[in-house]
Amino acid sequence: MKKIALIYMGGTFGCIGEPLSPMPADAFLPKLKHVLPLDMHIDCFVAPAIRDSSACTAPDWLALIQQIQSLQLQHYQHFIIIHGTDTLSYASAVLAQFMGQSAHIVLAGSQYPLLNIQGDNTREFTDAIDNLNFALTSVLKSSVGVYLAFHHQLMHAQTVLKVHTTELRAFDGLDANKQMKPVLTPYIVQDADINRSAQFNCISLMWQPLSPELQCQNLRNLLADLPDVIILQGFGTGNIAISTELINTLKEIQQHGCAIVLTTQVSFGCIDQRYAISAWIKDSGLLLSNCLGHADLYAKCLKMYLQYGSAANWATHWNDEVI
């Protein structure tokens, strides 16, 4: 019988009380074990950080990956991750970018807690048990890779996006049965990576229908303390109306060591430069997103930051594993 490692990381799934807050892991796991299928070999583990997922950051996910990679050395190859829904798409993308095709990993969460307010019994209405059982079945049937299981949908983890705040069908993404070129090579996470990731600073700017002059002013406000990467979310296929001043500002930002990545604010689909308004991009030095969504782009930038350091090295490796 295949061993499954179930790692609990908090989220609505394990919340109790009013207002909802994560139940302490040592109290929650015995309750969780009562609802696990008896015909599966499931070992439960506590993630390095238990918190509301809206508070999760890169070090939390990298510590989780390090835990998974440690469990792989103990001959676990099938993993269920219980995670909160607020940043579940980001957790999914980071695991996909860093784990590659090295294990069978399914993330899951819920819109309603497993337990009642008191935490002494299962909730009368919950999607937690259903989502968990679906994830457990999926992790044994799916091929190697990272997936999200939610409301009877199994999706490629790099593509998922939370599309509803309260409905049971809270996520959308590419169906796991459809072909996708995944990240192949895993990244072995070290303690130094976790520590360094705490300094990773990424700003995503959703382009607004403003004049190039105002856009330029907004960008120049960042010059005093630039992040590691600025993600520009253009319109449509990545279109941005430009001016000479704006081009010069973007170049100045790049000269200060900040990477600039162009993507689209549209949820699904790739960017391209088939419109004349985007002709300037060819000689701009901007990195063009080849990712499968906003969370996937964040995850790739984090990985580039850890692998290659300064933005000057990013361009050389940006298309090493084109999705």
Rank of each mutant, 00 (worst) to 15 (best):
Arg220Asp: 07
Ile80Glu: 02
His78Met: 07
Gln208His: 05
Trp207Leu: 13
Gln208Met: 12
Ser70Thr: 15
Thr126Met: 01
Leu214Asp: 05
Cys301Ala: 11
Ile203Leu: 15
Ala135Tyr: 05
Arg220Met: 01
Ile271Met: 02
Val146Ile: 14
Asn290Cys: 08
Gly269Ser: 01
Asp283Pro: 00
Gly173Asp: 06
Glu321Ser: 02
Pro186Leu: 09
Ala25Asn: 04
Val139Lys: 00
Ser284Val: 03
Ile4Cys: 00
Asp175Trp: 13
Ser278Cys: 12
Tyr305Val: 11
Gln72Phe: 05
Asn177Ala: 14
Gln208Tyr: 03
Gln66Tyr: 08
Lys251Asn: 11
Ile194Arg: 03
Val183Lys: 11
Glu321Phe: 08
Ala5His: 05
Ile194Asp: 02
Arg196His: 14
Phe98Thr: 03
Cys291Val: 00
Leu32His: 08
Gly236Ile: 08
Ala108Cys: 15
Tyr147Arg: 12
Asp86Arg: 05
Ser310Trp: 09
Leu140Tyr: 09
Ile188Pro: 11
Asn221Phe: 09
Asp193Ala: 01
Ile82Asp: 03
Ile277Glu: 10
His151Arg: 06
Phe200Trp: 11
Ser211Val: 07
Tyr187Lys: 09
Met155Pro: 03
Tyr305Ser: 05
Ala170Ile: 03
Gln215His: 08
Cys15Ser: 14
Arg169Phe: 03
Thr263Leu: 04
Val106Lys: 11
Phe200Met: 08
Leu107Ala: 04
Lys2Thr: 07
Leu262Glu: 00
Phe134Ala: 13
Ile4Met: 07
Asn121Trp: 01
Val229Asp: 01
Asp193Met: 06
Asp60Gly: 05
Gln190His: 15
Thr166Ile: 11
Phe171Gln: 03
Tyr90Val: 06
Asn177Leu: 15
Ala135Leu: 04
Asp39Ile: 10
Asp26Phe: 12
Ala55Ser: 14
Asn133Val: 06
Asn218Asp: 07
Ser92Gln: 02
Ile271Pro: 08
Phe79Arg: 01
Lys162Trp: 12
Ala295Ile: 03
Asp172Gly: 14
Ser70Arg: 13
Leu292Asp: 08
Met180Trp: 14
Ala27Phe: 05
Ala5Met: 05
Leu132Ala: 01
Ser142Met: 15
Gln199Pro: 01
Gln217Arg: 13
Ala47Arg: 09
Asn177Glu: 13
Ala295Cys: 12
Val261Cys: 09
Ala157Lys: 00
Gly236Asp: 08
Ala259Pro: 07
Asp60Gln: 05
Pro182Leu: 13
Leu306Cys: 10
Thr126Asn: 06
Gly145Tyr: 11
Val35Met: 10
Met304Tyr: 10
Lys181Glu: 12
Pro22Val: 05
Ile271Leu: 03
Ala91Cys: 15
